[in-house]
Write a protein that binds this DNA or RNA. Sequence first.
DNA 1: CCGTTTTATTGACAAAAGTCAATGGTTTTT
DNA 2: AAAAACCATTGACTTTTGTCAATAAAACGG
Lengths: 192, 192
Amino acid sequence: MYDLFFQKFREKVPLSVEEEQQIKSYLTPKKLRKRQYLLQEGDICKTLAFVEKGALREYSVDNGSEHIIQFAVEGWTISDLFSFLTGEPAIYNIDALEDSELILITRTAHEELLQTQPKYETYNRVLITSAYVALQRRLTASISLSIEERYTNFTTMYPDIAQRVPQHMIASYLGLTPETLSRARKKMTTRK
Amino acid sequence: MYDLFFQKFREKVPLSVEEEQQIKSYLTPKKLRKRQYLLQEGDICKTLAFVEKGALREYSVDNGSEHIIQFAVEGWTISDLFSFLTGEPAIYNIDALEDSELILITRTAHEELLQTQPKYETYNRVLITSAYVALQRRLTASISLSIEERYTNFTTMYPDIAQRVPQHMIASYLGLTPETLSRARKKMTTRK
DNA sequence: CCGTTTTATTGACAAAAGTCAATGGTTTTT
DNA sequence: AAAAACCATTGACTTTTGTCAATAAAACGG
């Protein structure tokens, strides 16, 4: 159940068996059915969620239309970090796109681990740093690339997600309507 | 010269005088004239730069047009983090919008500090975490808000920057042409 | 100072993207 | 197996944004 979590952890920071056991004692497994919410806008985000299996999305809703800001598949962590850290109400929703298995870390667990387990802090720092870099690249893409480029960028970066997720959600992730993405794809195939 | 740096540091993580001295020994001051580059696309980004005084921008250029991805004024840190961490060539340029005074941390200094000074690691983690949260909010705004909302958002979030920086750079930061921003502003004032 | 450069605005027009509605093909549910 | 829900595509049309060009004001540098 915790295999992937510790595999990913060790890729970033090596761990002894004892350390692994100590950290494991802070983790909670959770299963989520397709379409179930992990978090709803307005609630306080109580946990970080690591995806052992399945796929989730994080999105905001603004007068009726959804804007996906992140996908998470196996090996990824998802949360409304701002809400998690500050205790303010979440501005995002998170729900499952497939039946999923998660590993949850509550805020108190997170804080105790930061205090008591230096390797957890290091892991956390490395994790958030690469998330930041990825997000910065994504923002650059969204500001400077054409729709076609953004789409190809996405499919080559995350071929896995591109296959598992309906196209209109990718459109939403890219900040487009489904129609516009459909037409962009058509243009791409007729020319290529 | 290092006042603001340690003030910001202590806001996040308290420091003893000795710790401050130890960290200080890893820092290098640098002055930059207006329009001077701190980093050019293609070069390796050698440092993190904390802004003690002045203002800088980070931007990418793609066939002729510039896209500003970040501003940094007093108290902010700026860098091409990906290039800094991996040693790959930078995809961004950084230059000074005003005469500026910076505090630089080289990659080796950064790594030694991470190893030897737990509080530096904590500071770093907290810093990058809030940078991540801010970036996520910005991305959400850029995907889900109208131009008017994005602009008001920016000016209320960073009134200081909005005043110091020419309008066409704000347009670039928001992913717009200067003309479009100018017209959006006009619409806002006539209605309000 | 005075000339040059930068900056913001505006107009006319073109291109890009969104909206609405319809269709046909899937998948899901019962 | 049939009905319902979901999904991708397409067409006609509207709205939004970009492009190019001109102008005037402001800032800057010698």
